[in-house]
């Protein structure tokens, strides 16, 4: 699984296809670049299934940061995202016996977390959405004379998304965040969302179209000078 944006704790353990350049494996035991024993997700899951709570706590520490970032982008709410992350790990714990080790634990966990986030989005009342739209504030960009590329830093990306993501459906949000922001492959996004690759591409296409339209209306700073008028 290629996840270029995943957090540092998880990225080394997600990819089964990632070449082992620095780490090594002797007699089934993985070693890190400094010779320390590295437990992978499957080993910790097996220990957790046998009742080792500490092993599960390590899985939570390894994956909660990345899952939180994804869920926070889908929900456009940092605090609510932590609640969803906690619920996802609890649900995963309750269903641990049903986890199929042939699949990546991350994909399985992200599927649980994304589904919870989508359910939450659907349950939000229109009144809450209206309140949020009314209280949002315009992003203030530093150095308006500079080019858009030079201004586009990392926090800015999340701030802009937070203000525009309301125009997307829950499925479009999830697909766009997983694919465009987290860098998952189409097949992985399809697995997380439980739909076909074609549906994922369609969600991405529609999301990009809507975001492009909103960016032109609300953030003309990102348009070429000729289009700003």
């Amino acid at each position: 699984m290629v996840k270029e944006n995943l957090c540092v704790q998880s990225v080394a353990h997600i990819s089964h296809r990632r070449p082992q350049q620095e780490a090594g494996e002797i007699c089934g035991v993985s070693f890190g670049s400094r010779g320390e024993v590295v437990m992978n997700d499957l080993q910790w899951i097996q220990s957790a299934k046998n009742g080792d709570e500490d092993a599960y706590a390590k899985l939570v520490r390894r994956h909660s940061g990345g899952l939180h970032r994804t869920v926070a982008r889908i929900l456009a709410d940092d605090t609510e995202a932590w609640d969803v992350v906690q619920m996802a790990f609890l649900k995963a714990w309750q269903k641990l016996d049903r986890y199929n080790p042939r699949y990546s634990f991350t994909t399985w966990l992200y599927r649980i977390g994304t589904n919870l986030a989508i359910d939450l989005l659907r349950s939000r009342t229109s009144r809450e959405r209206a309140h949020k739209a009314g209280t949002e504030h315009r992003l203030r960009l530093v150095g308006t004379g500079e080019g858009a590329g030079a201004r586009a830093d990392s926090n800015e990306t999340d701030n802009v998304l937070q203000q525009l993501v309301g125009v997307l459906t829950p499925q479009q949000r999830s697909a766009f965040v997983l694919r465009e922001m987290e860098g998952l492959e189409t097949a992985e996004v399809a697995e997380v969302l439980g739909c076909s690759a074609t549906t994922v591409r369609n969600h991405i296409f529609q999301a990009r179209k809507a975001l492009r339209r909103e960016l032109r209306v609300r953030f003309p700073e990102y348009l070429p000078a000729s289009e700003r008028g």
Partner: peptide, 10 residues
């Protein structure tokens, strides 16, 4: 712009 989202681990 969104393809440049940060990879901050939290």
């Amino acid at each position: 712009l969104f393809a440049m989202a940060p990879a901050a681990p939290g």
